[in-house]
Design a binder for these strands. Structure first.
Lengths: 226, 226
DNA sequence: TGTACATCAGTGAACGCGCGTTCACTGATGTAC
DNA sequence: TGTACATCAGTGAACGCGCGTTCACTGATGTAC
């Protein structure tokens, strides 16, 4: 149960060797199984085979553990999205659609992880590394100025988004991410984001909608490309 | 504090008179202030000026109280969406866009209520009135067959959606909501749904996106109409 | 018109229990000499 | 090569407290006669 992975040179025993990663893995699977709101630190401990106090050597609190899982999710999604876009003509609607599909497929495959990543998360003050030049927007709760980066979690989310932005840089023949690129990408993100939540929240099921999700993404990508 | 509203013929005193509605109102404002996940029954009691046991005369449990608030929200949204659509040519992109704007405006005005209404809600078995012919979809958790109606909360949600469906019945010159109507409405819903969550979850702020939300809805409605 | 009685919406207090977190500790590991 | 010592990842137990819910009750209201 202990050290069942490739972690280097540990006999089973008092020192776990790679507890941080094991806790993240255990937490990820518990989150996925039951939703992050029902996640219990003690369960992750059981999963990793350690006492309930052990995580506090590696994470300041429960939220920090969940943040680490969210970041792992963002990294996976970024890689999957990039891989999905690669085979297609760069900057084309097909490439954008493929990236969108990766997003929605990820959501459907790991809905509770997806919710943790993209759902409502109040940014706690101590997560903000630099927030001097913040401004309040919309609900006056989430505040940030993304150029001065803020927190690792947000950085990981931004990296995901940039997979899409990179395509539109090509589509629009720019050499950097400028305002036009941001504007063009936004409705595409909006669509797959909405589709993901409608799908995983069961709205297609509840309303018995005769929808082919992947086909929707192709269709909408065509229409929403600049 | 007691009976400060139009409830009929109560002197202040032991019997509240209209506690059910007062609790719903108190809960709604607490949910909006702090998010439904942080809502405490005791706070609603304080708001209504009754003991912490009183709600259980009117609601089976905390969730039932939240469901009542969600239903009230759905009814408001339905009315607002219908009113927004009315001034425009029925079945036009303008009417559809106006309904979409009502949706997003509602979300931005009462984000926490919106999350309660449209966020992830596991359907508990005792909410399902008729569920004999259910089938499992996507995440194998949310199950329902919407034609046999299921629960008041879902019914209220459906009524909201039908404001949009009614427009597309006209657009497509049908006389009932058929499969084509459902298919045509879906991407429109998807877009405003995604836009609502991106907005209220602060993603526009975090990524400093130069987006005019209302303009987005006009633009996308044009492009996504059948 | 007054009295008896059923009904039920409220009260006040406490239960219960889940669970995040802390605390003083112990065992393992690596390194200086 | 062996010993002393610093370091720190883990343990086990318990704390603490928030909060939903229950229980036996009491006060108000309406109705039958």
């Amino acid at each position: 149960m202990v050290n069942d992975t490739e972690s280097p040179g540990n006999k089973a025993g008092y020192h776990h060797g790679n507890l941080r990663d094991h806790l993240i893995a255990a937490t990820r699977s518990l989150v996925e199984a039951d939703g992050s709101e029902h996640f219990k630190v003690a369960d992750a401990c059981r999963g990793a085979g350690v006492s309930t106090a052990a995580p506090y050597r590696h994470f300041s609190d429960r939220q920090a553990l969940l943040d680490a899982v969210a970041i792992a999710g963002f990294n996976d999604l970024r890689d999957e999205a990039r891989a999905a876009g690669k085979p297609h003509e760069q900057g084309s609607a097909k490439a954008v659609s493929a990236i969108g599909k990766a997003y929605v497929v990820f959501a459907i495959r790991e809905p509770n992880l997806f919710r943790l990543m993209f759902g409502h998360n109040r940014v706690t003050p101590n997560q903000l590394v630099v927030a001097s030049d913040t401004k309040t927007i919309i609900d006056a709760k989430v505040i940030a100025n993304s150029s001065d980066i803020v927190c690792p979690r947000m950085g990981a989310g931004r990296e995901c988004y940039e997979v899409l932005l990179e395509q539109l840089v090509i589509t629009l023949q720019r050499d950097v991410i400028d305002e036009d690129v941001l504007k063009a990408a936004f409705p595409l993100w909006t669509f797959v984001h909405g589709l993901s939540f409608l799908a995983i929240d069961g709205k297609l099921a509840v309303h018995q909608l005769p929808i082919d999700i992947m086909q929707q993404i192709d269709w909408a990508s065509e229409r929403l490309m600049p």
